[in-house]
Design a protein around this nucleic acid. Structure first.
Lengths: 231, 231
DNA sequence: GTCTATAACTAGATAGAC
DNA sequence: GTCTATCTAGTTATAGAC
């Protein structure tokens, strides 16, 4: 890496941060450059100077979050596969590698938990529309790696089945994040962990069951081989 | 019913139809009053005359589809419960009662299949934001009925678990509809049925497995009691 | 009911002073 | 780099002729 792609300080970074906050709250289309520059106490020309256009700013906001999430997804999947070297990992672990980065990047953001999740939800709800080709490539690569990983655990599923089931998992995650405000209303229980953490656990278990539908026996077999053949 | 809530013909209906088409393709926020009136060959003032405002038009578009979907959901759930009177119905049937109306209302629409699904995806992705209170009531009632129906089949799940799992099912459906264009790319197989029909089947099975997670034994038992105990 | 014309406002982008 | 002022084009909504 011979260049830092995102500004770490200065007025450009300030604009990026403020824009994220507004986009998270109201959605990309509902925020004008004037809203942003006003909130950032910059002049109206600042966005065009620093990002070329409003769309350039949005692209940078999206990429700034999309790229680290994809990278963490790939890294986590690598770690899972390494740990189970040779053996087939449980579905839950692959799904967690896929979903947890959407939460895990929170600590690297200055946004509040609430706004971060709303923003991530919006980003992934429209991911794939008008992305720079470099990012499209990373998205495609990530998707492909996970499809192969799931395919190894669920060898009898067709490519279409795999793709659709992954799509359904994504849908659950995006819907959960986009409706973050209702995450608070639907209490997670009396756990000390954050509500989102508990909800992620729910989604992982739900998704693992869905991914493995029709192959409960084989899935059980991986975790406790004796359970099925011992009679 | 002593009044027909939606115009069946005339210029008002024409505006509604044209607006739907544009909203489906580009999203609500990306379509202006001028775009609509131009496409409908009406004058710019027509929307304000007939619907009071642009928001009034959007609300009517949303309600026109949300209400029949909710009603069909409730009717289908009634039918399922009647047919299994006393006994617990399979999860798949309740889920189908919940999801199929999003597809089933297609025949009552003049939109192409593609645009209809995109529109429904958009409507449900933002359902709950700024709805008229009458519609909010219908949404809440529908949700409540389904939560109770699922609760009967899955009596050991907490209310929070139920609510979240239903939320995840909705997410899968909305994501599938919102990305209709990719439904075509991910081929459904060589079946004669429409791609969407096959995909809905996939989602129902996926969701049934997810809903029943942790209670696979009880669920299997309902459908084929001998399968588990016969050894 | 339908239309034109226009009001009143907001959008993103830019030229040019400092 | 940062600012103000302004341009052009878009927006919704409305007043008033027909």
């Amino acid at each position: 890496m011979h260049e830092v792609p995102f500004p770490q300080s200065g007025p450009k970074r300030k604009l990026l941060d403020v824009a994220e906050e507004l986009f998270a709250e109201k959605g990309f289309e509902a925020v004008s450059v004037r809203d942003i520059t006003q909130a950032a106490k910059a002049n109206v020309a600042a966005i065009n100077y620093h990002f070329g256009s409003r769309d350039g700013l949005i692209a940078m906001v999206v990429v700034r979050h999309l790229v680290p999430v994809c990278e963490e997804r790939l890294a986590r999947l690598d770690a899972v596969e390494k740990r189970w070297a040779g053996k087939t990992p449980p579905l839950e672990e692959i799904i967690e590698a896929m979903l947890r980065p959407l939460l895990g990047q929170l600590r690297k953001s200055d946004l509040s938990e609430r706004l971060f999740y709303k923003l991530i939800g919006r980003i992934f709800a429209q991911a794939g529309e008008g992305m720079p080709s470099s990012v499209e490539g990373l998205l495609a690569k990530t998707n492909d790696r996970f499809k192969k990983a799931f395919g190894k655990v669920l060898p009898t599923l067709s490519g279409e089945d795999l793709a659709w089931r992954i799509h359904f998992v994504s849908g659950g995650m995006i819907h959960m994040l986009s409706n973050y405000d209702s995450v608070q209303k639907l209490p997670a229980g009396s756990s000390a962990a954050s509500a989102m953490e508990v909800t992620l656990g729910r989604l992982i278990r739900f998704s693992a069951a869905g991914m493995g539908e029709g192959m409960a026996v084989a899935a059980e077999l991986v975790e406790s081989p004796q359970a099925f053949f011992d009679f």
